[in-house]
Design a protein around this nucleic acid. Structure first.
Lengths: 237, 237
DNA sequence: TGTACATCAGTGAACGCGCGTTCACTGATGTAC
DNA sequence: TGTACATCAGTGAACGCGCGTTCACTGATGTAC
């Protein structure tokens, strides 16, 4: 087993100049995060794995945080691609396509657990210092809202405030993705599960609910289309 | 403004013995985490805030991680109380009570954001070194499964595998809680929102779905009660 | 009530460590002529 | 084609730092007699 092999095939090896250090650093970052979590990521470790001196990364990234922002930015772009791919592979109607937005989201998170964790890490909650990352994130989230608006335009889902519907949907798919990314799923299911199947199940619950008996649940719960929301006063901010 | 005031009213001040250091350390920990995130929590900082020497915490906690595990354990107990409180305050049927499990969960997360982040932090994913924390966590999660089984026993929700239903529900309430805890909600809604209202909305979506037109969505999506699940083969683990 | 003593919660100095970042530098590369 | 030179991606040593944890210790407390 050869340790510290370069993953990104530099143009030539053994030279003073690396050739493709920027990408090698990103690859090494993902490797490190996979092993120890982004919490314990150090630039020195990344440099070590890329086979380069401690100071070399600063030729390509202004800081540790900037490197993580770059990893996140790529992640959001990949997520957008995953969502677009899921939509493209779907020959159904607007409702089907909306569900596939969620499937694409969750499949990306499952296939890129370390990266997903970086994208939602606390240190990158405020992305204003990294406009490209911020823009890529906004683009990812737009698919959900667009899908919801398309369904509403056809009367396929309830005409609630689409941002509110989006929040409910985002909660579910982000929650599932987080549980997958953090490795918490075994707590719930010991058996081997298909992630896409799980994502579709959750999507189906969001669309149709789990209550029996038609729409009665809706009315009884006061969540009808125009019923006023009742906000209790305990324990909220 | 007096800095470093002790929050936990020690029996007497200015003495060699603190009187209530253990609790003061936990309080200080929450303070620190609120400010800098658990990622940047250091035992030295905690000791500093409790007005005590660097080595003092080791009289009460074996390590930094043990302190965090204790914070998490208390959190799971508080979450159980919050859920029990929400159920107790509900005079409805099994379906109402199930929804209130979710509301109690989210209200706890909202009222204890820093603690919630610790409870689900990567370093505590494996709780086997802290059996008390593990047990408290298991107890919290049991409410969901119990609520689902109670509804199923009365035929109020679909008879899918209750663990699968629980996973869908947990995804949604954990997702919402995570977004709140990480402060990501402003991205979605600029306006001021009631957390309990949001939680009830999400709960309503889980129970009744957002699709229009009765149960047709269920059949069309192949998520009917006994329809076999179709597992596509792309991109899953 | 008074004293001797065990207990143990605190002190403060020290350990070794790995970190992010900076610095003056070196040497490979590619281009102008 | 050959040479001079600007560029800039790398080096490696060093900076100052705060960390988790350990150590021998000190002094407040409470209990046995």
């Amino acid at each position: 087993m050869t340790l510290r092999t370069k993953k990104s095939t530099p143009k030539r090896s053994g030279t003073y100049h690396h050739g493709n250090l920027r990408q090698a650093l990103i690859d090494a970052t993902l490797e490190v995060i996979d092993e120890v979590g982004h919490r314990n990521l150090s630039l020195r470790d990344v440099a070590r794995r890329a086979g380069v001196s401690t100071a070399a990364p600063y030729r390509h990234f202004a800081s540790r945080e900037a490197l993580l922002a770059q990893v996140a930015e790529e992640g959001y772009r990949m997520m957008s691609e995953s969502i677009e791919g899921a939509i493209a592979a779907c020959d159904g109607d607007s409702l089907d396509r909306l569900r596939e937005v969620g499937v694409g989201y969750v499949l990306f998170a499952n296939a890129n657990r370390a990266r997903y964790a970086v994208m939602f890490s606390e240190e990158l909650v405020d992305k204003s210092a990294y406009p490209a990352t911020e823009a890529a994130a906004a683009r990812s989230f737009a698919y959900l809202l667009e899908g919801i608006r398309a369904c509403q335009a056809e009367g396929r889902i309830v005409p609630d405030d689409p941002r509110r519907v989006a929040l409910a949907a985002w909660s579910a798919i982000h929650g599932l993705s987080s549980l997958i990314s953090a490795g918490q799923l075994p707590i719930v299911h010991g058996e081997r599960l298909s992630i896409a199947e799980l994502a579709r199940y959750v999507g189906g619950v969001l669309l149709s609910g789990v209550a029996t008996g038609g729409r009665s649940g809706v009315d009884r719960l006061g969540r009808g289309r125009s019923a006023p929301d009742v906000a209790p006063s305990t324990g909220e901010e």
